Every structure is written in structure tokens, then in C-alpha cells.
Amino acid sequence: MDLSRSSKANEATSKANSFFKAGLAKKVIPGLILLVVIFNSYFIVVEGHVGVVKRFGEAKHQENPGLHLKIPFIETVEMIEVRTRKNAEKMASSTKEQMPVTVEVSVNWTVNKEAALDLFKRYGGLTQFEQRILDPRFRSATKDTIPQFEAEQLIQDRASAIQGIEHRLAAEMEGFPVIVDNIQIENIVLPQKYINSIEIKQTEKNLAAAEEHKLERQRLEALRAVNTADAKAKGILKVAEAEAQSILLKGKAEAEAIQAKAKALKENPLIVKFTEAQQWDGKLPTTMMGGQGVMPIMDLRQPSKD
């Protein structure tokens, strides 16, 4: 009797649990389905991208950054980056003199935002576009340009090589929905023998330049000495000319003075008497000399008291 009651109680409990689980499942499962539907009914496009909306795999339209709605389980979204991307390539080539060289080049490119849908339809996305279109053309443009430059020119004038690659790549990428720019030659690897020869050549060039500088300095010093001597000689000549001119002028002045004095004496003999009177010291002569008919010489000096 007790076993029968216990069995009935367990059966009732089992039925109650089953009923409870069934009721809970009926409530939870629709809620989960609703959440899944809600989460699949919208999408967010972040900045720097556009969203290509696909319906059963077919690209229908594109959306700009922001929150957008879509049909759950039917439409999916593919993100296309429209910011600048960088591709780098390391490739083997040769210079104009047939010297093997390895160059590392890079290129920046940007998808035209308005043409993102067209790019996805034609090429299936950015990765496929890079692998099928951009990278092969980039390698081709580089390998066509590098052999036009000698190794030394390639090292010293990378800008010309870069410009050549840009022109070729721009021509090959014309018509594609991307903008290609800012190509850079990141590194140039030449054979070690050539690098050693460049170092030797540069050393010899530096020595030659130093010797040329030394010779030029000696030439300037010699020229400076010549100029100094010439300046001194000119200075001495100027001094001599000035002294000669001074003597000439002085002699001329003295001659003119003598001529003027002679002329004055000639025109007025009294000037002689006047000059003698100016030069007389006021004493009479102590002796006189004479001949016949003249007074004898007389000593007019007073006798000494001794």
C-alpha cells in the first residue's frame, strides 16, 4: 500500500516537472528567436568603411557609416575600407648595366568611396582586388622602371625612379575605382662587390677633392702674396711720384721767386741799397785802401789802454 502511494507520488512529480519544462520552453524559445531576429535586423558601419548589403549573395547597395536596418537571415553586409591602404613589395630586378638588385617598394592607394559597390561586384573585395589587379601591375611598373637607371643613379636619384614608377602605374590603373599615390622606394640592395667599389671610388673622390682644395688654397695664397707685393710697389711708386712732384713744384716755386726778384732788382736798383742797409750791422769799416790821389789807409781803431 505504501509502495503504491510512493509510486503515484513520483509519477505526479514527474508529470509536473515535464509540464513546467514544457511551459518554460514555450516561453523561452520564442524569446530567444525574437532576440536573434532583432540582432540580425540591423548593422553598424564604422568610419572609414562603407557597407555593401548582399541579398542571397548578390550585392544590392552600399551604406555609409552609421546604423542601418536589413532583412534578418536574408541580407548580409560586407565591409569595404575606404581609407588609405599601403601595399609593400620586395622584388628582384636589374639596373641599366645589368647588375642584379633587390628593391623594396611601397604604394598607398584608396578606394573611391562612391565606387565601392562596383569594386565589390567586379572583384569580390579588397583582398581580391589587391591580389588580382593592383599587385601585379605594381610589380610590372617597378620592374619596367628600375632597368632604365644605372646603379649609382638609382641610389643618388631615387626621386626620378619613383616618378617613373608612378607614371607607369597610373597609366595601368586608369579606369579602376581606386586612387594610387605616394610610391616610395624603401630600400635598395646591391651586390657587396659593387658597394665596395663605390666606397673605394668615393674615397678616391674625397682625396681628389681634398687635393684640389689644397691646390686652390695655395693658388689663393700665392695670388694674395702677389696682390700684396703689387700693392706695396704701387704704394712706393705713389710716394716717389708725390716726392718728385713736391720737388718739382718746390723748384719751380724757387725759380719763379728768383725770376721775380731779379726782375724787381732790374726795375728798381734802390732795392739793392735797401737790402744792404737791412743787412748792415751799424759798424764802420776799420780800414780803407786806396791808390794815388786817395787817402792812405788809416787805423781808426782806438789804442788799447795797455
Rank of each mutant, 00 (worst) to 15 (best):
K252G: 10
F120A: 01
P177E: 02
F56R: 03
H61W: 03
A208I: 11
P72E: 10
N17G: 05
E78D: 06
M295C: 03
E97H: 11
T13G: 00
I71M: 07
K273L: 07
G175Y: 02
L34I: 10
A12Y: 11
K60S: 00
K96Q: 12
S18T: 10
M1H: 05
L237Q: 14
K8F: 12
T142Y: 02
A229W: 14
K26H: 05
L270M: 08
H167D: 09
Q279E: 06
S4F: 11
P296D: 09
I258F: 13
Q279M: 08
S94M: 12
K273W: 00
K15W: 13
H167A: 09
P100V: 07
L223E: 15
E276A: 07
A25V: 07
D230E: 15
E104D: 08
V105F: 03
L300K: 08
N108T: 04
F73C: 04
F274E: 10
E75H: 01
I200Y: 12
A92Y: 15
K250Y: 14
Q218Y: 13
I80F: 01
A222N: 15
V50M: 05
G124L: 03
E276W: 02
K263Q: 09
A12K: 09
A210R: 08
E78Y: 05
P65F: 11
L134D: 01
K60Q: 03
I183D: 03
E172N: 00
S197F: 15
L154A: 06
R168V: 06
E267S: 09
A255H: 13
K27H: 09
D2T: 13
L220E: 15
T102R: 11
I271E: 04
G282P: 06
T275A: 12
M1L: 04
G125H: 01
Q279V: 04
K283G: 00
L248K: 13
H49M: 08
F73Q: 02
L134R: 02
R137P: 00
A12P: 00
M298R: 09
P177W: 03
V52G: 00
Q148D: 08
Y42F: 14
D2H: 14
E58W: 05
I188K: 07
P191N: 13
A88N: 08
G164W: 04
S140I: 03
A161C: 09
H49T: 04
Q302N: 07
I258L: 14
W280M: 03
S4I: 11
G251F: 10
A255T: 14
Q245I: 07
I162C: 03
V189R: 12
A171V: 05
I133G: 00
K21M: 07
K263S: 10
D157F: 11
A92D: 15
E199S: 14
